[in-house]
Design a protein around this nucleic acid. Sequence first.
DNA 1: TGATTTTTAGAGTAATTACTCTAGGAGTCA
DNA 2: TGACTCCTAGAGTAATTACTCTAAAAATCA
Lengths: 233, 233
Amino acid sequence: MTSTKERILNTSLALFNRQGERNVTTNHIAEALGISPGNLYYHFRNKGTIVAALFERYSQHLLTLLEAPQGPLTWTIKTYYFEGLLASMWQYRFFHRDLTHFLHADAELAARYQAFVEIVLERGRVIYGELRSSGILELDDEQLQGLMVNTWVLMSSWAGLVHGLRPDAAADEALDEALMRHGVYQIICLEEPFLRGEAREHLEEMKARYRAANNTSTLLLGHVPGLDRTGSE
Amino acid sequence: MTSTKERILNTSLALFNRQGERNVTTNHIAEALGISPGNLYYHFRNKGTIVAALFERYSQHLLTLLEAPQGPLTWTIKTYYFEGLLASMWQYRFFHRDLTHFLHADAELAARYQAFVEIVLERGRVIYGELRSSGILELDDEQLQGLMVNTWVLMSSWAGLVHGLRPDAAADEALDEALMRHGVYQIICLEEPFLRGEAREHLEEMKARYRAANNTSTLLLGHVPGLDRTGSE
DNA sequence: TGATTTTTAGAGTAATTACTCTAGGAGTCA
DNA sequence: TGACTCCTAGAGTAATTACTCTAAAAATCA
C-alpha cells in the first residue's frame, strides 16, 4: 500500500493535469483522496510544496532518461526513445502549462528549473551529437544547436498547445494517446531534413507509425479544414 | 487623450505581460491607473472581459497581418514578415502563457480561440504555399503541414519559454528585444533545410541578423555552458 | 499493558480578491 | 438654469481558499 504522501502526489498530479493547478484547491485534493485537509497539510506544509515535489519527480525522471543513450543508436531506437521522453513529459504536463505562476511564486523552484533545462539541453546536444557521429544526422554545430532548442520548445509546449485546442481530450484516453503520439510525429518532422542513410529509408515507416489516422488538423481542431488546397501539383 | 477603457486595456496588458495575469488583481490594475475599482468595473463587468477584449485585439491584429502576403515574396521580405508576426505575439505574450486558465474559465473564449488557431494555420499554409510557388521553399504537402504546425508551436510558445528561463528579461528592454529576435532566429532554423536558390544565398546574412550577439545558451540561460564540446571536427 | 510517536479528522480562521452599491462629479443639451 | 446621461470614487461585501489548531485514533515500542 502506497503511503499517504505518495497518494497525495499522485492524485494532485492527476487533478492538475486534468483541470490545471489553479482550478484545483487543496481541499479539493483532500476530498478526492477521502482524507481531511488537516491530514494533507500534515504531509505538505503548503500547496507549493506539492508542486515542487512533483517537479522533483518529473525532473529526476526526465534526466534519468536523458542520461543513458546506450551505445550506437539506430534511427528506430532513437524514435522510440523520443516517444519515451514525450510520454514522460506528458505525464507531468500540468507543469509546463502552468509554469509561469510556479516560477513567479517560488524563486527556489525557478532556479532549480533553470538548472534543469540547462542540463536537458546539454544532454540533448550530446545525444544529437551521437546521432551525427553514427551518420544518422548530418548537420553542423549551429544547426544542431538550433534543432536542439526547437526540439525542447516543441516537447515542453506540446501538451499545452494540445490542451488549448482539445480540452476535451483529457476525458478520452484514446484521443489523449493519439495527441501525445502526434507530438512525436512533429519531432520527426523537425529532424527529417537532416536524416541520412538508413534513417532516411525508414522515415516513411516511422512517420506512419506516429502520424494520426486522420491528418493533423482533424486531430488538433476536431474536423477537416481545407488542407488539400495547398497542393503542389 | 485615450479613453479610460483603452487605458485599462493597455495597463492590464502591460501588467499581465510582466507579472502574469494570475498575479495581477483588478484592484492592482485600478491602482496602477490611478482610478477606482468601481470605475474599472464600470467599463468591464469582470476580469475575464478584460482578457477577452485583449484577445480580441490580439487575434484581430494577427489575422490582419496574416491576411495580405503582398505579391511575390522574397526571402528577405518574408523574414521581416516573420519578425512582425512574432513581435505582435510578443506584445500579447501573457495570453499564450496563461492560456490554460482562460480557456478553462470561459467556454466562449475557448471556442473563439480554437477558431482563431484554425484560421491562423490555414493562412499560414497559404503563405508557405506561396513561398513554395516562388521557389523559395522546396517541400511536399506533408512537410509543409508539419512545418506549419511546428512554426505555430514555436511562435505561440516562445515567449512562455523565454519567460521561464529569463524572468528578469521584462525589466531589461534590450534583453527583451534580443530574446524576441532570437525567436525569429529559431524560426529560420526551422525552415532552413527547405530553402532554395536566392533564399539559400541570403541565409547566413539573415541568421546573423537575428542571431544573438552571444550564443543561444548564453542568452537563454544567462551564462556560457559547454556548447563547444559538441564540435564536429 | 502503558507510553510515546505518528497519523488523521474536521471545524475553524485569516487573508485575499473579484465584484457591488451608493452617491456624487462632470459633461451635454433644453 | 435645470434635467439627464455618462463617468468616477471608494467604502464595503461575499465568497473563495490556503492554511491552522486541537484532539483523538492508530501505530510503534518498552
